[in-house]
Design a protein around this nucleic acid. Structure first.
Length: 346
DNA sequence: AACTTCAACAACCGCCATTGG
DNA sequence: CCCAATGGCGGTTGTTGAAGT
């Protein structure tokens, strides 16, 4: 038996919204709020619309401070840079562009920005390379420019936008706020990206997508709303930490963030604990890593990025570190309990 | 003027994650 | 723990108007 429909399809209006419907919805929400229930809202507001449709209309068009119209060069830059990094995570990208909706950005990318990019590409490379198929890596963004780098040997973007050429789409994104990837919802995981130049170089010494990011801290790739870096005993620290959302909701998305340089010759360490000092979970895991054997697939096996998340999930759910998915003590947590992290060291 | 093509964007659909009974 | 309801997201389709023939 299939899922029950969210509304009575026969009795809901579809198609473009009329001004009357808009004002009904706007007035109702401004007066009563959404009540946390979109499904019930249309009936209360006197609308013959599906709840989902109301939600979309409100979020994409009616809510205050929505920006319509031309995208600025600055916005182009941010979109392109983020797309190159995380792929088609439109909601995350939209969170970095106040007033823009994910739908808006998606449309803008599909109709203009992508073409702009293609138009600037050399003739021989105008066809975007094929992306990894879903059976290889179903979670990889379908239009990930990181994949594009891999598949095209890294030459596509560089030949479009050599480093000497100023192009709004692929300048470094140092201007992006440190709370990049912070969603505007209750979960406030954030990301800051950093790398050293060698770490992210592709195997064939061509350009890496990460070169578009300004290094913030050497040898560090961190996902989290504040920069906390734990060093290895030898002082080296190459760390990636991911916000809670990346782990819980988009855990496989971790692969998307795996820079090429990590695929070989890098060890990884997974650490859990609370924010300032590792708790037992972290200690257990550190011990696991320093004294025990790493999970299969961690060292020198390619494609590491593809295997990594499975191993992380395995670790998290293993008895040695407890059930990290459900037991928040096993994550790094900030004082607001919004910043749970997984870290990797080399 | 009529028709066709194309671009832009609004809206829908289906899937998946989360939540709460 | 299970499952239905709901929310959120990304991909896709539909609609509209402008431009071209």
């Amino acid at each position: 038996m299939g899922r029950a429909p969210c509304c009575d399809k026969a009795n809901v209006k579809k198609g473009p919204w009329s001004p009357e419907e808009d004002s009904k919805l706007k007035e109702y929400i401004e007066k009563y709020g959404t009540g946390g229930n979109w499904i019930a809202l249309p009936q209360k507001a006197g609308l013959k619309r599906c709840g989902k449709s109301c939600r979309l209309r409100w979020l994409n068009y009616l809510r205050p401070n929505i920006k319509h119209g031309e995208f600025s060069d600055e916005e182009d830059r941010i979109i392109c840079s983020l797309f190159a990094s995380i792929g088609s995570r439109w909601s995350i990208i939209a969170a970095q562009l106040p007033g823009r909706t994910d739908n808006d950005i998606k449309n803008y990318w599909n109709t203009k920005l992508k073409k702009k990019l293609m138009a600037m590409a050399p003739q021989s490379q105008r066809k975007l390379p094929s992306f990894p198929s879903s059976h290889q890596n179903p979670s990889l963004p379908s239009h990930s420019l990181s994949s594009l780098f891999k598949d095209s040997g890294g030459s596509f973007i560089t030949s479009c936008y050599p480093s000497t050429k100023s192009f709004p789409g692929f300048d470094p994104i140092s201007h992006i706020s440190s709370n990049i990837f912070t969603s505007n919802t209750s979960s406030s995981s954030a990301v800051s990206l950093a790398t050293n130049s060698t770490l992210f170089q592709t195997q064939d010494s061509l350009v890496s997508p990460m070169q578009f990011y300004q290094p913030v801290k050497e040898n560090l790739l961190m996902f989290g709303s504040e920069a906390s870096c734990s060093s290895n005993s030898d002082g080296s620290c190459s760390q990636m930490s991911y916000g809670r959302d990346q782990i819980k909701q988009e855990d496989m998305g971790l692969q998307s963030y795996m820079p090429n340089g990590f695929e070989e010759n890098h060890k990884f360490m997974l650490s859990y604990g609370n924010n300032s000092n590792n708790n037992n979970g972290g200690e257990n895991l550190n011990q696991y890593w320093t004294t025990g054997k790493p999970p299969n697939g961690y060292f020198g096996e390619t494609p590491l990025a593809f295997d990594l998340m499975e191993d992380v999930k395995q670790l998290i759910s293993s008895s040695s570190v407890g059930n990290g998915y459900n037991n928040s003590n096993n994550f790094l947590i900030d004082e607001n309990k919004t910043q749970e992290k997984v870290m990797f060291y080399n």
